[in-house]
Amino acid sequence: MQTLALVVLAVLTAGYLVLAGADIGMGMLLPVLGRDGRERRLVIAAFAPFFLANEVWLVAVAGVVAGAFPGLEHALLSGLFPVFVALVAGWVVRDAGLWLRGRVDAAAWRAVCDGAIVAGSWALALSWGAVLGTVLVGGSRVEDGVNAGTVLGLPLALVFAAHGAGFARWRLASGLAERARRVPGRYWVSGAALAALPVAAGARLPWSQVVSSPEALAVTAVMCVLMVPLLAAAQALVWWTFRGRAESPGYL
């Protein structure tokens, strides 16, 4: 059961980083990909239909950790308290910028929201890089807090940006996609890196010390195994629905 729960957790975490990594990366590159307000709205239209369906993978990760490995939540979140505050705050700021940008028709308003999207996306990528780096280096000593691996945050954040550029090549309107090609990045290469990272970091964690009792573990694991194909199908429906390039502005 523990192995099953670990596989589910690995799939969800890798899924989050690969899928949401693309919209976070595009948010980081927003000023590069879109030079004026109208272009930036097109860039946002290219990834906005995905961000809700992407970030829920992280919510599911948090749920599975709470259900199957409650001890980890404590170790990870208390040990890396400042990093996680930055992560969650960046997430809120980025999402608020996305939701609010199109609501008021004023250049200053859009400038503030664009700033929130870019700053929030960078904060998210840097904190994810810091979390993954700290766990990679610290392993089971993650409860002690930041270590040498935390500085891996910066290079890992650049992987997010490259991933966003790779996604932008497919999604952006034809003219803007040219601009994305100038940023080095291949979706599958950066995607493979983002999928491998949590697995490598996770291999260093003391799972059997944080696992819940067999009864509670079974509940979470069985439910997840039943649900994950459905969740993947919902994600596939999103990709199929928004498969073309975003040539015109969208809702946000």
């Binding site: 369906a53 829920v56 919510v59 599975v64 629905t241």
Partner: peptide
Amino acid sequence: GEVIGAPLAMETVVAFFVESTFLGLWI
């Protein structure tokens, strides 16, 4: 943790995941 973790895991995986994904599709 493990007692309230079970319903929280169900909430995220069974309910919220689907709700948010489908809301994005709807919008």
